[in-house]
Design a protein around this nucleic acid. Structure first.
Lengths: 138, 138
DNA sequence: CTTGACCCTGAAGTTACTACAGAGTGTCTA
DNA sequence: TAGACACTCTGTAGTAACTTCAGGGTCAAG
């Protein structure tokens, strides 16, 4: 199949595939007489792995490591496990950060009650003008 | 004060401040005889507002809008409220996304029990090789 | 007068793509 | 057979929010 069809099957664009090839995430593939890239099922499988990992929020570097750990099908999957574990840790950390942010934002919102006061008297702006220690909001 | 001191007070680097100036988030300031930027308390206040907003996860574009809404201290703060409300929405959406991701990652992890099997038999890799609809994991 | 800490500018690197511009290829229809 | 149209090619530049670097200048202390 050509790049457009591969893209459709993988749920991404042709540009993305060319980008992955350029950066070594996908191997260079064969070309037709007209210099079009030509793909088969194995390419689709690899691309799907990459796209699934991206959908799970992994960075391309993490995926590269995962592909390396997968390259020998007889190797054990301890490395894969570790990479996944590390990524779960990243996501958990980001989740905690965001939850904390959201909490602060809700407190901040509560400081302005009707939106009709002058900006300089608004509790939101006053809080945002404070020291970087945003915790004084609480 | 000079840029290094301002940076220290605001909890960022001098490069960040120069970047904010270049992109119009901070005004161009006066210079000393030796061409050093020179700042006072009002600059610090504005920079803190910017950094606080960044700490709350706002994009520079959002902050630019907020600064514009704040520029007239007699205007009412309805616009400020709206901007904050929109940002709270963004964070909530991102939180929901991340929570969903984390759920999928935990399911994925459960598919490999001991890390000693061959990569090609590993449930993790099998799942990652599937269709982009990662929900088949569940 | 030299050392070291600080500052200056301008350009390039980072991530993961996306969006061109300008050209060639392939198929279908008139 | 010619034209229209969809698709593909390469290479470059743009995005966000900085960070890093090269190659300088400034200033106070010893």
């Amino acid at each position: 199949m050509k790049i457009g069809e591969l893209a459709k099957h993988a749920g991404c664009t042709a540009e993305t595939i060319r980008f992955y090839e350029r950066t070594g995430l996908l191997p260079k593939t064969s070309r037709t007489a007209g210099n079009y890239r030509f793909y088969d099922e194995s390419h689709l499988e690899r691309l799907r792995l990459v796209r699934n990992c991206r959908a799970l929020g992994m960075a391309l570097g993490e995926i590269r490591a995962l592909l390396a750990a997968t390259s020998d099908p007889h190797a054990d999957c301890a490395t894969v496990d570790q990479l996944l574990e590390a990524h779960i840790g990243h996501v958990a950390a980001r989740l905690a950060e965001l939850a904390h942010l959201q909490e602060q934002l809700l407190v901040l919102r509560a400081r302005c009650h009707d939106g009709t006061q002058a900006v300089r008297d608004c509790g939101i702006i006053q809080a945002l003008n404070g020291t970087p220690d945003i915790c004084h909001l609480m």
